[in-house]
């Protein structure tokens, strides 16, 4: 239970001369639900994108079960398949139906059997309450529905860690609830999750660990009870005072 799935060591990322991430260190254990909070521009999303190698870190290491994924020894596509990602802008494949969105990765990446893939896709679509819409195309769905399909698509790949990049930020308040409910269900089922979010209630009530970031560094991390109730750093205190 205590094994680190992901270890991030001295991770830095610069865009030109602008240093977005400065010497980030932190670990993700199996079963952790980690919320990364902080104001916009603090590097939260960049950190997540670095972990999934959508951005190449400038320096530092990302260890997946002790193996460095940045140096390129490990097959990047295979690594990405084990680390799922849910995007703010959903990124569902527009040329496919809801069901096909959940099948394509299993067929082409995992090379699963047809029956197994189908069963798994429907299982997860059912978990997020989207089974009635399996024949719909993404553009026919509402934002909340799209995001729930995106979660099912990520889950269908059976990832070891699931990354969420502000999954509710593009949704109106009514739809935020349905997506958060789906995420709560996953947290309860013991999924390892890393969530960048502005939903403080989710961070406080659902996550097992909270990380507060500002200006590209981790200012404070700890159990939600500690960070929210008794923040040690004045920056954290100021940030949280605006929400609570």
């Amino acid at each position: 239970m205590s094994e680190n799935i992901l270890e991030i060591k001295h991770l830095s990322k610069s865009f030109g001369t602008h240093e977005v991430l400065k010497d980030i260190d932190f670990n993700v254990k199996a079963g952790d639900v980690t919320s990364i909070i902080g104001s916009s521009g603090s590097g939260k999303s960049t950190l997540l994108r670095c972990i999934n190698l959508l951005e190449t870190p400038t320096s530092g290491e990302i260890l997946f079960h002790g193996e460095d994924v940045v140096s390129g020894r490990i097959n990047q596509s295979r690594y990405r398949a084990k680390v799922g990602m849910v995007f703010q802008s959903f990124n569902l494949f527009y040329n496919m139906s809801v069901l096909e969105n959940c099948l394509i990765g299993q067929h082409k990446v995992l090379k699963s059997e047809k029956a197994e893939a189908m069963d798994r896709a429907i299982h997860y679509l059912d978990r997020v309450g989207m089974t009635p819409y399996i024949n719909a195309k993404p553009h026919q769905l509402s934002g909340g529905q799209k995001q729930r399909v995106a979660i099912a698509r990520a889950l269908a790949m059976q990832p070891e860690v699931l990354l969420f990049d502000e999954p509710t930020s593009a949704l109106d308040p009514e739809m935020v609830g349905e997506v958060l409910d789906a995420m709560k269900g996953m947290a309860k089922a013991g999924k390892t999750m890393l969530v960048v979010t502005h939903e403080m209630a989710f961070a406080r009530d659902v996550s097992t660990k909270v990380v507060y970031m500002a200006d590209g560094v981790i200012v404070e991390e700890g159990k939600p009870g500690e960070v929210f109730v008794n923040p040690q750093n004045p920056k954290t205190r100021e940030f949280l005072s605006r929400f609570l």
Partner: peptide
């Protein structure tokens, strides 16, 4: 670009 990122995120290669 999100379409590419979505595909990469589930482990597809550039060709796929």
């Amino acid at each position: 670009i999100g379409q590419t990122e979505g595909a990469k995120a589930i482990g597809m290669t550039h060709f796929q």
